[in-house]
Amino acid sequence: MVLFGVDVDYLAFVVLFCVGLYMLVRKSNLLKKLLGLNVMETAVFAFLVTSGMIEGADPPIRTAGTGPLFANPIPHAMVLTGIVVAVSVTAVALALIVQIHAHYGTIEVDELKGLP
């Protein structure tokens, strides 16, 4: 679907990305910032998967009775890599958040500012 010369799906992913960016930039809570980062990542993955789709195509698995059109396998492989990296980043960041809470007793950036 195209609206005013822009693809509506891509538009929706831009909106999702910006919602995540807003959460990352404006929220003071470190956990909410990390949730925002995850929302941004998922929006990017959705953009890549959507760019690899073809109208009426089958998944890129060439077994009997499929075809002739197949979705593009490269974005799918990239997104699989991205999902694994995203969960790695999230795990390390969460462990750091637990440590910050243990040291300072808060995970609000506003309260962490100026602490020794």
């Binding site: 993955f45 998967v49 959507t50 690899g52 789709m53 073809i54 195509a57 089958d58 998944p59 890129p60 979705a71 799918h76 997104v79 699989l80 999902i83």
Partner: peptide
């Protein structure tokens, strides 16, 4: 899944 990426 709807967009042909069951693996992902």
């Amino acid at each position: 899944q709807h967009r042909g990426a069951p693996d992902v």
